[in-house]
Design a protein around this nucleic acid. Structure first.
Lengths: 136, 136
DNA sequence: TATTGTTATACTCTATAACTATA
DNA sequence: TATAGTTATAGAGTATAACAATA
């Protein structure tokens, strides 16, 4: 009925569609959606466990298990911080970096059928509107 | 770099933001995101277990547990189909219908700070573009 | 035989609480 | 005392495989 309600519905629907798509791409590489997010975050950062927990919006204990499993699979490496012996830095292995590149390409491919429904100028307008929504 | 890449990134970011928001609203009512989806689906449908599994994109066995827990909480009701004794129809209880209305209002409230960043005509344009993306 | 749904099993994700080690 | 991280525990979500009942 309301303009804002219509927008809210569209946003929720698109989010579910994108999430399903991301889950599929992740599953192809035997990754969970959370592990996919970890890969994305660690692509340009080497955070501590606590920082990673903040990025993910999860408890530190949850991230401990998450990173342990990822390390066991050879996806991440844990190194002790030289300045603070309590701190642990997490980083991607080179294998995981390749995997991340692969997965991102996969996302692009799966998303193309959607984005291709819009022409180039529509794509640009949509990107601008979504960026504004996210606060620039 | 590419226009399509920018759009892909915006869509993924928006999806994560919306998902986080939905999870928060759900958690306020002690619901998981999946249970929230179930509520949304059952608001205008009374599907069988198999149909519900298709809507959710989950295995039938998964939905069995999901609906069992929801039934135990008094959110849904299972009734046997009169024409096919194998089939089970799932429907919301009246309490759950009220809960669904409440939750949807909560989503609107939490989403308002985002959508309010756009003026009315921008909201309409965004809605149209997202609808086109989803295939009308 | 095929379909609907459940059960058994196993694993991941998640949080809370209690703990260790370091600061 | 406070902070970083782990461990123990418990529960939800998920899939696969095997099953029962019905068609």
């Amino acid at each position: 009925m309301d303009t804002a309600d219509d927008l809210r519905d569209s946003l929720v629907q698109v989010s579910f569609a994108v999430t399903a798509l991301l889950s599929r791409v992740a599953a192809e590489q035997d990754l969970s959606l959370t592990q996919l997010r970890v890969l994305g975050i660690l692509r340009d950062r080497e955070p501590t466990m606590a920082e990673l927990a903040t990025y993910l919006g999860l408890e530190r204990s949850t991230v401990s298990g998450l990173i342990d499993r990822a390390a066991q699979r050879g996806l991440v490496r844990k190194t002790t911080h030289p300045d603070d012996a309590r701190s642990v830095r997490v980083s991607l292995t080179t294998e995981a970096q390749s995997l991340a590149t692969l997965v991102i390409a996969g996302i692009g491919e799966l998303m193309a059928p959607l984005t291709d429904r819009l022409n180039s100028s529509e794509q640009k307008r949509l990107t601008v509107l979504l960026s504004n929504l996210l606060g620039r």
